[in-house]
Design a protein around this nucleic acid. Structure first.
Lengths: 219, 219
DNA sequence: TCTCATTTGTTGCAATTGCAACATTATTTT
DNA sequence: AAAATAATGTTGCAATTGCAACAAATGAGA
């Protein structure tokens, strides 16, 4: 059972999905699925697999808007998916429950206990998304690559409490996430290494500084 | 009646607020109110006035995280307000209803109609916030000042359908929003003017290009 | 209306960054 | 295991940007 249905027993889950006219889709790995859902305000609940939402510029470069893992949700109300620039790609064989957002938010299910529970679950997903986006904004508003990296490290440190950071994605994706040129980021990481602030082994980065360090003065 | 209580009559509104142990605060203009709410997960509903949420760096510069207008909501779940770097400043005499987020999300009010309605209203606020944050991220991920400006203009254009953009804030604040140096932005605006793509009169910017224009090639 | 404070415009300069191109190392596929 | 593909490291160079400093314009308050 996914978190989206927490507090709703299986029987009511089925009732709920019928009520919301939900559809279950099964996609193969590396499918572009946006075309199948484009024209509606929808919520997708990923019950198996995971997806990447990307946006491509006219010059061809592509940016990851977000990755949505198993058990998580996505939708037109979370990312604007309506332009042709967007793609939703399954990175594994993926199952998705699609729900019409407008139907969900309509007022027709007033006395339905599990409906309210579901809304509340959605609410919690959405507040989590907001926090993720806030983090990204805090990083993106930093004016130098160095400070973007340090802000990213800070956030990871606060989350895990550990000075060992395991990148959840490649360095290419990190550059993308920070919205900087990959090679320029690579250069800056090298600087930080040479100045003794960090160590890097594969995707594991070790922070060798603390709050009192001189590196914090600029931030 | 604020949108937060849409679909809830006044009597039930009062019941709801009592149930949620809501407090109403009255602040004078230019008060720093964060200290009064810091330690809880809270939602604030602004019934009168408006506020600015800012974050200051160690070097003293301050960034506007968001402006929250009358009728809108804010809270620890929307912006992380827990660090000392944040400030919430009232820009007018302001009334705020404070609600404990954890209490709101608890499961004790199962059969309460207006409670569910309220959650749903909050849900819609929050999805709107997400979309605002998505917009900002799309802007911030642009790699040049020019492209940030153009992306900003695009978004404003899409919202209003008009080529006349009235800046809702000062150019200083715009630089802040785009996370670029003000003078560098000013320089770039001048370039765009001289190349004939825009006109500027005070806070009114006119777009002199369209989708087919060469200016779009890079974007 | 005058004064003071804030915002906006401008410019030179140094530092940072993006870009392109290529070498090297990992990873995946056959 | 070999070959193909993808990711990472590196560097020079030109373009962009941030920073600082100051002038001009605008707006707010006395």
């Amino acid at each position: 059972m996914t978190k989206a249905f927490e507090g709703i027993n299986e029987k009511n889950q089925k009732k709920l999905l019928r009520m919301l006219e939900a559809n279950v889709y099964h996609y193969k790995k590396n499918s572009n699925i946006l075309s199948t859902i484009k024209n509606v305000n929808m919520i997708g609940i990923i019950t198996k697999g995971y997806i990447q939402i990307t946006r491509s510029n006219d010059n061809g470069s592509r940016t990851i808007i977000e990755e949505v893992e198993e058990e998580e949700i996505f939708g037109t109300f979370i990312s604007s998916l309506k332009s042709k620039d967007y793609e939703i790609i399954t990175k594994e064989d993926t199952d998705i429950i699609m729900i019409d957002y407008d139907l969900l938010i309509q007022n027709n299910f007033r006395n339905c206990e599990y409906y309210h529970q579901f809304i509340k679950n959605m609410f919690e997903f959405v507040t989590k998304k907001i926090q993720e986006k806030n983090e990204r904004i805090e990083i993106l508003t930093q004016k130098s690559i160095r400070n973007k990296l340090l802000e990213y490290f800070n956030i990871m440190f606060k989350k895990t409490g550990s000075k060992y950071i395991y990148l959840p994605f490649t360095f290419m994706d990190l550059a993308d996430y920070l919205a900087v040129d990959r090679s320029a980021m690579s250069r800056e990481l090298k600087n930080l290494k040479e100045e003794g602030f960090i160590e890097i082994k594969g995707k594991k980065i070790t922070l060798c500084y603390d709050k009192n360090s001189s590196i914090y003065m600029g931030l």
